[in-house]
């Protein structure tokens, strides 16, 4: 049981310039294979947390290691999925998925194999030649996911990836995401504003409070994997969603409102 954590925050503090404290001495250890959901009031620093791990923004104080490296050095082990699909509109679906590898100089044949595998995973194998504007919102998001998976990341960072989609699409994508993970067990940080999504996907839910951002509580989700639509009908699932919602509500009430919000 003494596996070293793959992502470790030790008293990490973050502020932008001389602005207010965004994250306050945050400590957290993610074990390999953890699926961490992050919920909390808007503006509490969820995106910032992910951006620190991704090396897109430096920590102000404290220590953050990703697979024993600094976030910047660990870039090759990370993939980021934003709330918007963030595809390059002038490239086809296939070209979008291949782009990162192309920039790294991977030979075309190897690229094509990886790309095909990734598109198969998200069930878009036959849409490789389409341009992003020809796809639905859900399909674009799956391309974005395929692009992230094609990098074979150890850690997947997802910032409200399905937040803009309708509920049916989102539930399907959640099931797909877990099915994909059965094959390749990356560690996930998944920011969401939906408690039920957090419960369905994760084994740990971090509930954050705002101003400054702190981890208020951690909820363990001991529902067995693989999870299916039946999981959503179980008593345990409902109890966890109810408890999570109550907790989120109380956190929102205790969080002081940001002065400039």
């Amino acid at each position: 049981m003494s596996v070293p954590p793959i992502v470790e925050f030790h008293e990490v503090t973050k502020r932008f310039g001389d602005g207010p404290l965004v994250l306050d001495r945050l400590s957290l250890a993610a074990q390999p294979g953890d699926f961490l959901a992050v919920i909390g009031p808007s503006g509490c620093g969820k995106s910032t947390l992910l951006r620190l791990i991704a090396g897109l923004s430096p920590v102000t104080a404290g220590r953050l290691t990703v697979d024993d490296l600094t976030p910047a050095d660990a870039a090759a082990e990370l993939a980021f999925v934003f709330q918007e699909p963030t595809l390059l509109p002038w490239l086809t679906v296939a070209e979008n998925v291949e782009l990162a590898q192309k920039l790294r100089g991977t030979p075309a044949a190897a690229r094509a194999a990886t790309r095909q595998g990734a598109l198969d995973l998200v069930r878009l194998a036959d849409r490789g030649g389409a341009y992003p504007r020809q796809l639905s919102g859900g399909q674009k998001m799956r391309v974005s996911l395929a692009r992230a998976l094609s990098l074979s990341p150890k850690i997947l960072l997802l910032d409200e990836p399905f937040g803009a989609l309708d509920e049916m699409t989102r539930e399907h994508l959640n099931e797909e995401l877990l099915a994909i993970r059965e094959q390749k067990a990356w560690t996930a940080f998944f920011v969401t504003h939906s408690v039920s999504e957090a419960v369905f996907l994760s084994n740990r839910i971090l509930v954050m409070s705002a101003n400054p951002g702190r981890i208020h509580t951690e909820i363990r989700v001991d529902l067995p994997y693989p999870r299916t639509n039946d999981t959503r009908l179980s008593r345990a699932y409902h109890d966890l969603v109810a408890a999570g919602s109550r907790l989120l509500r109380s956190v929102e009430e205790i969080s002081p409102v940001a002065s400039r919000a």
Binding site: A54, G55, L56, A75, A76, L78, A79, F80, F82, E84, T86, L88, W90, L99, A100, L103, R104
Partner: peptide, 25 residues
């Protein structure tokens, strides 16, 4: 797009690659 620039950063794209594959198109 800011997020696209950040993806290129995470992919370790060179300035030239960023220009050719992202900024110019």
């Amino acid at each position: 797009d800011r997020h696209l620039v950040e993806l290129f950063r995470m992919w370790r794209a060179t300035r030239g690659q960023q220009l050719l594959h992202l900024r110019v198109p």
